[in-house]
Design a protein around this nucleic acid. Structure first.
Length: 104
DNA sequence: AGGGTGACCCGCT
DNA sequence: CAGCGGGCCACCC
């Protein structure tokens, strides 16, 4: 690994376009570690930087997942970007989902 | 240095 | 749809 796992998670998360989302598992896989989804969540939970749109990262089943500022806040942010959510679940999940690739 | 922890995931009941 | 259990991983005492 040429960089810290956490660093790579952040860099990858920054690439998620506004109004689109990705999943913990997706990011883990993009980093070459399909089983590290949990670790990805842990990394994002410690993120303080506002440059990292960690609210655009959701669970692989389409549910919103957690957020250090509170799930409600996460839903709010997503909504303001045009991502429709219903009952803690993202509508049109398959559509707004993005595939990321690593360059790091 | 070893074990606990968590913004997860998947399969099964 | 809801619960439960086991697995996996990086991070922080």
């Amino acid at each position: 690994m040429r960089k810290d796992f956490r660093f790579r998670v952040f860099e990858l998360t920054k690439r998620i376009p506004r109004g689109r989302v990705s999943t913990y598992a997706e990011i883990a896989a993009a980093l070459g570690k399909p089983k590290a989804a949990r670790a990805v969540g842990g990394a994002l939970s410690k993120n303080k930087s506002k440059d990292v749109p960690c609210h655009r990262v959701i669970a692989s089943d389409g549910t919103v997942g957690g957020f250090n500022r509170g799930t409600g806040e996460k839903i709010k942010l997503l909504g303001s970007e045009g991502v429709r959510i219903s009952s803690g679940r993202v509508r049109d999940f398959q559509t707004v989902r993005v595939t990321l690739k690593t360059n790091i």
